[in-house]
């Protein structure tokens, strides 16, 4: 009994303690001129979909819900965002060569087609981030078009 109590107290202290550990937040006020939306003529509904479903991890600006400010969730999220941005950063779209743009678009299509993106762990919480079958098709069709125009 006493041991359980001690462990509980230790965990509580540690939990409170880690809340004070800083994480770098992925937030930026300005959108660079290389942003995907600025250099491409993106229809409004597609824009909205990309913003809601992709930009949290694939841009320099994440819309954080409250629980993502709680550790250790924030660390978990930080890693995801870092990885996501390394793979694809919509804010830096125009700094890619045409060849790489095409490659990225192809990968985006594959990821959406196979339901690998948006991540399940993400849509689980962000219900509005998941795609309906129709939305998926619409998005893929538009991205195909963009790819062929490059």
């Amino acid at each position: 009994m006493k041991v359980v109590k001690i462990i509980a107290i230790v965990l509580l202290v540690a939990f409170v303690g880690i809340q004070f550990m800083p994480t770098t937040r992925n937030q930026s006020d300005s959108v660079p001129s290389t942003d995907f939306m600025l250099v491409n003529n993106v229809p409004e509904n597609i824009q909205k979909k990309l913003q809601v479903s992709c930009y949290d991890c694939h841009s320099n600006n994440t819309q954080y819900p409250w629980y993502n400010q709680v550790q250790p969730v924030a660390w978990f999220l930080e890693d995801h965002i870092k990885e996501g941005k390394a793979e694809l950063n919509f804010n830096e779209w125009d700094s890619l060569s045409n060849r790489r743009k095409k490659s990225k678009l192809r990968s985006i299509i594959k990821q959406i087609e196979s339901d690998e993106m948006p991540l399940y762990s993400y849509t689980l919480i962000h219900k509005d981030a998941s795609f309906s079958e129709a939305e998926k098709q619409e998005l893929i069709r538009w991205i195909e078009q963009l790819k062929d125009s490059i």
Binding site: V10, A14, G17, I18
Partner: peptide, 13 residues
């Protein structure tokens, strides 16, 4: 004991 363990945990973190 508690303080020590908490300290170690925090250090690790």
């Amino acid at each position: 004991g508690i303080v020590a363990i908490a300290f170690i945990t925090l250090t690790a973190m």
